[in-house]
Amino acid sequence: MITFKVNKKKVSVNDDPDTPLLWVLRDTVGLKGTKFGCGKAFCGACSVHVNDTVVRSCSFPVKYAEGKNITTIEGVGTEDELHPVQKAWIEEQVPQCGYCQSGFIMSTVKLLEHNPDPTDEDINKSITNLCRCGTYYRVRKAIHLAAKLKKS
């Protein structure tokens, strides 16, 4: 039994300890907003927060989640109040197919916590997620907008 918190709720799972956190979140906990893209931590579609860090959950065995706080896309905002990053994403109409966007949003939320006013250069260094639709131009605009929304 491995116990941890997902979006502030306590969760205990019986999965094999080596099961990637991604599949535990998706299939055991039932939160399907975190996506499977490459399975090798290259693309970032599976990005979640483990405590204060962005983790590519496809390559993170669930045993290391023991006692940790996990946040997924379902937990960054609430039904009534979206996270400023999500608001900025809607304002800039960022997603296209949308499959990689949870990962971009999770990476951005953490970037802004560590760096409230990132430059383009900072963004280039921290946001290395892949998007095949090519939403990068609007992702960049939305990150800058989210920084503004967070401050105000």
Partner: peptide, 21 residues
């Protein structure tokens, strides 16, 4: 127009093929 699919693509609720249960 604001795209109709965007709200559920930023909160994790959009159902892709891989999400079907």
């Amino acid at each position: 127009l604001p795209r109709v699919d965007i709200p559920e693509k930023v909160n994790g609720k959009a159902v892709f093929g891989i999400d079907v249960e």
